[in-house]
Amino acid sequence: MDSLVVLVLCLSCLLLLSLWRQSSGRGKLPPGPTPLPVIGNILQIGIKDISKSLTNLSKVYGPVFTLYFGLKPIVVLHGYEAVKEALIDLGEEFSGRGIFPLAERANRGFGIVFSNGKKWKEIRRFSLMTLRNFGMGKRSIEDRVQEEARCLVEELRKTKASPCDPTFILGCAPCNVICSIIFHKRFDYKDQQFLNLMEKLNENIKILSSPWIQICNNFSPIIDYFPGTHNKLLKNVAFMKSYILEKVKEHQESMDMNNPQDFIDCFLMKMEKEKHNQPSEFTIESLENTAVDLFGAGTETTSTTLRYALLLLLKHPEVTAKVQEEIERVIGRNRSPCMQDRSHMPYTDAVVHEVQRYIDLLPTSLPHAVTCDIKFRNYLIPKGTTILISLTSVLHDNKEFPNPEMFDPHHFLDEGGNFKKSKYFMPFSAGKRICVGEALAGMELFLFLTSILQNFNLKSLVDPKNLDTTPVVNGFASVPPFYQLCFIPV
């Protein structure tokens, strides 16, 4: 009986604490739906499609509103004006990374994606500088992407125009580009180590996009005490870190300090320079996690976009025909596509942009946080508050993009057929937390897609009208449904 009384008292205290925290903070924060004790607004949000729920709530509470995930307040920004004001106009104040408990377990605050403060700034600055020195957006990395595009075309030829699921092959190409940047090595598509790495990356994007992960991140005790797919994700990350550590040891034994070959060499050189400046942010643990982040951000996002792009091109054969006509006119058949071609191919450029806009790969991006107490639109948001960005509300804005739910390359073309930029184009987020590999991803999408369409016609196994382009999961990332196609050599 005594234990029951204690339990009831504990629960009562928890409920009172929950109510007090919510009521004391709500006077400062933007308005929002009334949260339930302990669980907050979790029942009012469709976990399978958070973005749709945010759109519905914005119609009631406006472009800036507050939700509670458990006891934790989260300020939501919906629509271009609110997102721009926060991420661009007040970029420094909104540059923090929001709480992501599962990532905390995986990387302990290291790396480039989930770190904060001085650690994040130094690692991000170093990573950007190193990638630029190796030619991100310049010639040397373009050579690597072109080489991988040629290998991709050869792998597709091996399908002999038979029906195939493109998931694996389209994942190999961007993964190999990242391998060449980090390890100075590309792998054969049949290499077992490479296959294991690909498998872990593919599993992780599916797990991260599941409703279960949303629950884990908002009720963090689940991570330590409950079984579930989150444990598989943590094991996959541990596998990748151990693999990278092996490569780091190989580099330490063979590195030429006067001739760095890749990202690992550059990081080890930085560690050597910083060894007298303790404590340094440049450690082996930081290198492991930064490399894992580059793999995660640079492989599955690009391969998922490529997979979605081919599905949309199957669905819209008239678009595919126009792209192939432009390829034939500008590039021809006797040389590989290059980035200089893009400025002469406005329709193809528009298609690449429209694919990214339409699929809305990361509907709410990753959570941000404010780095200080900030007054925002007459609300006071306390330091450390998590900020949720609705990228969907920007990419699918119906004023900027008429009929935003329709796939239409003319969203990025003017009346004369010239490519038209849009400030609403934010597939990689915006501001200080914009994806480090934005330029690389854009290069890969253009070169891989043009190389495929230069060499193959795409054949659907069903009537294009019957192809479903609805994402199968739409949590962290929008993942396309399973499909097969035939690559018919031109």
Rank of each mutant, 00 (worst) to 15 (best):
L9F: 08
L14V: 10
L15V: 14
L15G: 06
L17P: 02
L17R: 07
G27P: 13
L29T: 03
L29I: 04
P30S: 01
G32T: 02
P33H: 00
I39D: 01
N41P: 01
I42G: 05
I50L: 14
K52L: 11
K52I: 04
L54Y: 03
N56T: 14
V60R: 14
P63K: 08
L67D: 01
L67A: 06
Y68N: 06
G70T: 06
G70R: 02
K72P: 00
K84V: 09
L87H: 04
I88P: 03
L90Y: 14
E92M: 09
E93V: 12
F94R: 02
F100P: 11
A106K: 09
N107Y: 13
R108H: 13
N116G: 06
K118W: 06
K119S: 13
I123C: 07
I123P: 07
R124L: 03
R125A: 11
F126Y: 11
S127V: 14
T130Q: 13
R132T: 15
M136L: 13
G137S: 13
K138V: 12
S140R: 07
I141L: 11
D143I: 15
R144Y: 07
R144A: 13
V145C: 05
R150G: 06
V153S: 03
E154Q: 13
L156Y: 01
T159S: 10
A161Q: 13
P163L: 06
D165F: 00
F168K: 09
I169R: 02
G171R: 14
G171Q: 13
P174E: 10
P174S: 12
N176T: 00
H184L: 04
K185G: 06
D188C: 11
Y189F: 05
Q192S: 14
L195K: 15
L197T: 03
M198C: 14
N202V: 08
E203C: 06
I205E: 10
I205R: 14
I207A: 06
L208R: 15
S209H: 12
W212G: 03
Q214G: 10
Q214P: 08
I215V: 12
I215A: 10
C216A: 14
C216T: 09
N218A: 15
N218R: 08
F219K: 02
P221L: 09
P221R: 08
I223C: 08
I223R: 07
H230I: 10
K232P: 03
N236G: 03
V248M: 07
K249E: 07
E250A: 07
E250G: 06
S254M: 13
S254K: 12
M255L: 12
D256R: 10
D265T: 07
F267S: 04
M271S: 09
E272V: 13
E272G: 14
K273V: 10
K275R: 12
H276K: 11
Q278M: 07
Q278A: 13
Q278G: 10
Q278W: 11
P279G: 15
S280T: 14
E281G: 12
T283F: 05
I284T: 04
N289V: 08
A291D: 02
V292A: 11
F295V: 11
F295C: 04
F295N: 01
G296M: 15
G296C: 13
E300F: 14
E300A: 14
T301C: 10
T301L: 13
L306D: 00
L306C: 02
R307M: 04
Y308I: 03
K315D: 02
T320N: 07
K322V: 10
E325R: 15
I327T: 05
E328G: 12
G332L: 03
R333L: 14
N334Q: 15
R335V: 05
P337S: 05
P337K: 02
H344W: 08
M345L: 10
A350L: 00
R357Y: 01
D360A: 13
T364V: 11
T364K: 04
P367D: 02
A369F: 04
V370S: 12
V370A: 12
D373K: 03
I374V: 13
K383W: 03
H396P: 07
D397V: 04
D397L: 02
K399R: 10
E400S: 04
F401W: 13
N403C: 13
M406A: 12
F407Q: 00
H410G: 12
G416T: 14
G416I: 11
F419D: 02
K421S: 11
K421V: 14
S422F: 04
Y424T: 09
G431R: 09
G437Q: 05
G437D: 09
E438C: 04
A439V: 09
A439S: 14
L440P: 01
G442E: 15
M443D: 02
F446P: 00
L447Q: 04
F448G: 00
F448R: 00
N455R: 06
L458T: 02
L458C: 03
L461K: 15
V462I: 12
P464Y: 08
P464V: 13
N466K: 15
L467Q: 05
D468R: 12
D468M: 06
T469E: 10
V472R: 15
V473D: 09
N474K: 11
N474P: 05
F476T: 09
A477G: 13
S478V: 15
P480L: 03
F482L: 10
Y483G: 01
Q484K: 13
C486L: 06
